[in-house]
Nucleic acid binder design. Structure first.
Length: 812
RNA sequence: GGGCGCGUGGCGAAACUGGCAGACGCGCUAGCUUCAGGAGCUAGUGCCCGCAGGGGCUUGGAGGUUCAAAUCCUCUCGCGCCCACCA
């Protein structure tokens, strides 16, 4: 009969709740630890993919509590967002009702898994108690110029019917529904994250507790490049073209220039010329093309404007083009082209028969031949040629020398560019935080005064799927201007839900605060989050926005820390039948099913045992059964430890293994999150205790079982509580101190070491642990197996690795 | 195209700083028990040759460094992720 997990799990979940064992506050002399998992979007049913994230955290949480930490371990819900609104349209249910129901189901499932959150700190972002502070912070940002509105080309998702931030466009598609994103010029609200570009970049170096790849992704996303801005005058015109280059060393090799299709100067330059119609047609074609085929490696195309610019360094006249490979969004929207040293320029020059002028050659080379002979651009460093006084210089050196010269002559200046763009936060949807702005004909854009916050979401709205419901709610739109009291209208855009998730972890520190977003002292006590756990998909979304927010809130004086998350663990996904577990793929294993069939402890044990947290986990039904089997074995051992074969003497080997297991399990959890190997060594310990029906004295057996139960308790908390009680304890196992190992108990008198001949394993001998090399060599020589290999051979040398092996090198 | 990561039995995976590859588990095989369920217990299980003692091979592939390589270096193949005409 398997153990009755249903009764046991229910019993202990109620016990924990009743005794409030997971509550945390700031009044403790223990060391604080803030442990956090990325809070979920409440979409309803949990599957094991979600569960894995929480189980990793909870196991660690329980371990930390038993190791004397004052732990903050909260949970909440990222409750605003499109799915709720789509459900509203489809099922004629209000998003709030739908969301609240989902939260209820999800919370129940999380409780069934035995997750040890402090539920008193629950944060739900769709509640006015929370989102009013989104609005409050927005107003502060607005005052400081960190929130602003501008007309700009935006990414518009036709299916979600809203604009998206750059970070939310993945390969030209909407991150949520994968529809092709369109470019629309709209007036939108932005957060000025670019003000923090430099700090966001620089502070990455200090985030040593983050996976390197996440830091690299953020670094690339911020995309800093240092270079030179140079002004090229247009011949026979007052117009000037500003370009940006990271390769000032190639300035003498410029043979043409080109504009992005959207560049406003293009239209000015061709106005009234015979080329005007042709070029306008070309521009239209490119703009349309850009929208449709963002991805493919496009053939370079361009048209000559019939105009020339002047290279400010050489006075050379260079033709101006408009082309499809220059981005309006980066740099200045115009570039200088050096076909000899840039592959893109090279391809373009070849196609349109533009001269190629080499200014850098490899050490010891003259040039690479005629234009026709060249096959690709030379992009490496080298020696400068054809570059006036800079000729003969190393090209690396020339970069700074030419930059100095350009600045001196006032032809341009050094500048820094970032790929990072400001964060577009407006969304044309209902289910989000209303942006607290009022438009008055007389007074213009007026922020809603602090006393009037929150701006509540109206309830009298219809969800038709056509347009933003807020815009159609008269009671919402119509309002009075706070300044002149005249008729005015409200902003109907809501905020991106990533705004909600950018500071929720700070709200957890003081979730009921109603004077401010949070109390500074409380936040100072808990922040930063010591360990954050979540998926890699947020590498440049949530994790970047949260860093920005924390810095911006710090600059508002609301908190002291500049980085929200000290350590980050990105767990892998749960895979079944070759695909990520997801509703749409239809390969989900629900938490309810697992808990119903095997219980929470088995489900927990399996997801931790099957794979290390960072790696993807292959779901296996048989594997789950194996974990269940193990728990049953332990249960049986505790119920009726065999006593017939008890010896009079302590089993020294078992004692050593006990200490070894404590050391291994402790290290694996604390240092590396290697739950899989921790569990493996617990299993080994069990095998050792149970072997031959039990070993050592009765007392020793009892002691080992006790240790086993404690070590297993963070993984299988319910069963271990029950077993703990059976072992005669009246307090919860959570109150028990984590065991410590005794280093002196780990040493063995005799050990087995490997003997190699020429690096090949040829035998094993048992020796005294501290045996000297000479001694051991003699033992090895007299070993029957080894003897054979040494016959008629000369020993050239021996290599001895204490406690590991002896390698005998022979010749002849 | 650029960046990062990964590749170990039939499967999930172990292996500290270069030091006995395959711990632990799943699956499989045989036996016991009971059988009629997908339960329990014991033993075996990387591959090849051999009745066996034993021997040979083996960490995607090819080289190299070393007494010794899954681990370090070079090249190569395959897979995954991120960015992608960023001047």
């Amino acid at each position: 009969m398997p153990y009755d997990f249903k009764t046991i799990e229910k019993k202990w979940q109620e016990y924990w709740q009743e005794k409030k064992l997971f509550k945390s506050d700031e009044k403790s002399d223990k060391k604080k630890f803030y442990l956090l998992e990325m809070f979920p979007y409440p979409s309803g049913k949990l599957h094991m993919g979600h569960a894995r994230n929480y189980v990793i955290g909870d196991t660690f949480a329980r371990f930390l509590r038993m190791n004397s930490h004052n732990l903050l371990y909260p949970m909440g819900y990222d409750a605003f967002g499109l799915p709720a609104e789509n459900a509203a349209i489809k099922n004629k249910i209000h998003p709030e009702k739908w969301t609240d129901e989902c939260i209820k189901t999800m919370m129940e499932q999380q409780k069934k898994l035995g997750l040890s959150y402090d539920w008193d700190r629950l944060v739900v972002t769709s509640k006015p108690e929370y989102y009013r502070w989104n609005q409050w912070i927005f107003s502060k940002f607005y005052e400081k110029g960190l929130a602003y509105k501008k007309l700009a080309p935006t990414n518009f998702c036709p299916k979600c019917k809203t604009v998206l931030a750059n970070e939310q466009v993945i390969e030209g598609k909407c991150w949520r529904c994968e529809s092709e994103v369109e470019v629309k010029n709209l007036e939108q609200w932005f957060y000025k994250i670019t003000d923090y570009a430099e700090e966001l970049l620089a502070d990455l170096d200090g985030l040593t507790g983050w996976p390197e790849r996440v830091r690299i992704m953020q670094r690339n996303w911020i995309g800093k490049s240092e270079g030179l801005s140079v002004i090229f005058p247009v011949k026979n015109s007052a117009q000037k073209i500003e370009i940006f280059t990271t390769r000032p060393d190639t300035l003498y090799g410029v043979t043409f220039m080109t504009f992005a299709a959207e560049h406003p100067l293009v239209l000015e330059l061709i106005k009234g010329t015979e080329k005007e119609t042709e070029i306008k047609k070309f521009i239209n074609k490119i703009v349309v093309q850009k929208r449709i085929t963002r991805l493919e490696d496009k053939e370079k195309e361009g048209v000559f404007l019939g105009k020339y610019a002047v290279n400010p360094l050489t006075g050379e006249e260079i033709p101006i083009y408009v082309s499809n490979f220059v981005l309006m969004e980066y740099g200045t929207g115009a570039i200088m082209c050096v076909p000899a040293h840039d592959q893109r320029d090279f391809e373009f020059a070849k196609k349109y028969k533009i001269p190629i002028k080499e200014v850098i050659v490899a050490e010891g080379q003259r040039d690479r031949g005629t234009d026709a002979q060249l096959e690709h651009a030379y992009i490496e460093d080298g020696v400068m040629v054809n570059s006036a006084q800079f000729s003969g210089m190393n090209s690396k050196e020339a970069i700074s020398k030419i930059s100095d010269y350009v600045e001196e002559k006032k032809l341009g200046k050094r500048v820094v560019h970032y790929k990072l763009r400001d964060w577009l936060i407006s969304r044309q949807r209902y289910w989000g935080t209303p942006i607290p702005i009022i438009y008055c004909e007389k007074c213009g854009t007026v922020p809603v005064p602090e006393n009037d916050l929150p701006v509540l979401l109206p309830t009298d709205v219809k969800f038709t799927g056509e347009g933003n419901p807020l815009a159609k709610s008269e009671s919402f739109v119509k309002c009075k201007c706070p300044k002149c009291k005249g008729d005015a209208r409200r902003e109907t855009d809501t905020m991106d839900t990533f705004v909600d998730s950018s500071w929720y972890f700070e709200r957890y520190c003081d979730p009921k605060q109603n004077k401010l977003p949070f109390d500074k002292q409380k936040v100072s006590y808990w922040m930063p989050v010591n360990q954050y756990i979540g998926g890699i998909e947020h590498a440049v979304l949530h994790l970047l926005y949260s860093r920005f927010y924390t810095k911006a809130l710090r600059d508002l004086g609301l908190l002291d820390c500049g980085e929200p998350f000290s350590n980050l663990l990105c767990q892998g996904m749960v895979v079944k039948d070759g695909f990520k577990m997801s509703k749409s793929k239809g390969n989900v294993v629900s938490v309810d099913d697992m808990v119903g069939k095997y219980g929470a402890d088995t489900a927990r044990l399996f997801v931790l045992f099957a794979s290390p947290p960072e790696r993807d986990l292959d779901w296996s039904d048989e594997g789950v059964a194996g974990s269940f089997r193990f728990l049953n074995k332990v249960w049986k051992l505790v119920q009726s430890p065999k006593s017939e074969v008890q010896s009079q003497d302590i089993d020294e080997n078992l004692e050593r293994i006990k200490h070894l297991t404590i050391k291994k399990v402790t290290g694996d959890i604390r240092d590396e999150f290697h739950f899989n190997t921790a569990i493996a060594s617990i299993m080994e310990f069990y095998n050792e205790i149970a072997r031959d029906g039990g070993r050592g004295t009765r007392e020793q057996l009892k002691d080992c079982i006790k240790t086993l139960v404690i070590l297993l308790s963070p993984f299988a908390p319910h069963l271990c509580e029950e077993m703990w009680q059976i072992l005669g304890h009246s307090e919860s196992i959570l109150k028990e101190k984590w065991p410590v190992w005794d280093e002196t108990k780990l040493v063995q008198e005799k050990i087995t070491i490997a003997v190699q001949i020429n690096g090949k394993l040829r035998g094993q001998i048992e020796i005294k642990t501290d045996g000297a090399e000479k001694e051991i060599l003699e033992i090895a020589k007299s070993d029957d197996k080894i003897k054979k290999y040494l016959e008629n051979k000369k020993i050239i040398k021996t290599i001895f690795v204490p406690k590991k092996l002896l390698n005998i090198v022979v010749g002849g």
